[in-house]
C-alpha cells in the first residue's frame, strides 16, 4: 500500500467467490455494502461515485466518509447486490475498486444515524427529461 491510512478499520476483504455465496437478503433484512475507496480525496470525488450509485438498482442511501476513505451503501430489503455491480460502480466512476464486504442487516436493527448519509433518488417519471431533472435538482 502506498498510503498509511490504507490500514483502516475495515473488515478484511472478502474474496469474490465467498461474496457470491452471501446469504440473500429477504424482506426481514437488507444488504449493506461497505467498501474501502481508492483514489477518492475530496468531496467532489464522491460525486463521481454518486453518479454511478444513482444508476444502481435498489440502493436507498449512501454514506460517504472522507477520512476513512469509505463508502457504505444500504439497499432495499429483498434486493440482492452482486460483487460485480459494486466493482462496476468504482470502475465506471474512474477509480480502482477496493476491498468490500456485503452484510445482511435485520430491518429491526437500530438505525445508523451517523453523519454522512445521503438518500439516493430513484425517479420513476416516464419522461427521461423529468427523471434527469429529478435526479439532479
Amino acid at each position: 500500500m502506498l498510503w498509511p491510512s490504507a490500514a483502516l478499520a475495515l473488515p478484511q476483504p472478502v474474496p469474490a467467490a465467498s461474496l457470491a455465496q452471501t446469504k440473500p437478503a429477504n424482506d426481514k433484512s437488507f444488504q449493506r455494502v461497505t467498501e474501502q475507496l481508492r483514489g477518492v480525496f475530496s468531496p467532489r470525488s464522491f460525486f463521481n461515485i454518486l453518479v454511478r450509485i444513482d444508476k444502481l438498482p435498489g440502493v436507498v442511501r449512501a454514506k460517504f466518509d472522507l477520512k476513512k476513505s469509505q463508502l457504505t451503501l444500504d439497499f432495499l430489503p429483498g434486493v440482492v447486490v452482486s460483487p460485480e455491480e459494486i466493482r462496476n460502480v468504482m470502475v465506471d466512476a474512474g477509480y480502482t475498486p477496493g476491498p468490500f464486504k456485503i452484510e445482511n442487516i435485520p430491518v429491526s436493527a437500530p438505525p445508523d444515524n451517523r453523519p454522512g448519509w445521503i438518500n439516493i433518488k430513484h425517479p420513476r417519471s416516464r419522461s427521461a427529461f423529468v427523471r434527469w431533472l429529478e435526479i439532479n435538482f
Binding site: R38, G39, S69, G94
Partner: peptide, 12 residues
C-alpha cells in the same frame, strides 16, 4: 484519455 492511474485510499 486517462492513460495511467494509481489509486490508493485518500489519494490518486
Amino acid at each position: 484519455y486517462t492513460l495511467y492511474k494509481k489509486d490508493w485510499p485518500n489519494g490518486t
